[in-house]
Amino acid sequence: MTAGSAPSPEAGSAAYVLAVADDAMVYAQRLGEWLTNAPQIEEDMALANVSLDLLGQARALYARVGELDGSGRGEDDYAMFRDERQWRNVHLVEQERGDFAREMARMLWFASYQHELYAAQLASSDPVVAGVAGKAAKEVRYHLDHARHWVLRLGDGTDESHRRMQAALEWAAPYVDELFDDHAAAVTAVEAGLVARLPSELREAAQGRVEAVVSEATLTMPDPPTWRSRGGRDGIHSRPMGYLLAELQHISRSHPGATW
């Protein structure tokens, strides 16, 4: 998992799967924060369901990473005992929970991205990656549907909901490019047949989905942002990441090996 030097094919595959898993894990943690905080108890349940789908994806992938990188580490080792610089998720998923419109903007983008990502992993050379993709593809279709319905309602709802949904799209825009960066591990993964397409090749379809929803919701796509996030795939994270990890990991680290 060392960055920089040319990785062996297995290590490269492990680094790629780790990035996919970290995106899912960190977003699962953020979505879990909505429990008791969503506009309605029904939405608490909906977001928790999405969170648990993502957690399930991450768990299966972490187990595979432990095999691919030869370390034999388990899911808890990856989720609970890595420091910030060892995480490979994009900045979009680590950003603090904003208002509900922001969450729907983030979910719309992330689910659109994952939708294309898992489609490109269905014929993966790695049976676990292919298996997770097959299961996750159905889950992600529902996440996409959920985000779409809310963006439509907020965008084409009241003046206030329209304004906030539009603002949410603007908020998410600087974090979008990073999803589609062809980072080193992804290039290695494509060469190894782990995934059929590079992140940049997922963009057209993913963005098309987002644009269709935005337009139907009487919203407009934001202008190209004046800055963009970068660094997540190299373990360089933004300020909220440390706080997120502290909350995620403190029980495991305070009581290593504890069970119930």
Partner: peptide
């Protein structure tokens, strides 16, 4: 979405 919801922003009712 012909029927906009009558929920005021931030309503928790």
């Amino acid at each position: 979405m012909s029927e906009p919801t009558a929920v005021p922003a931030g309503a928790h009712d």
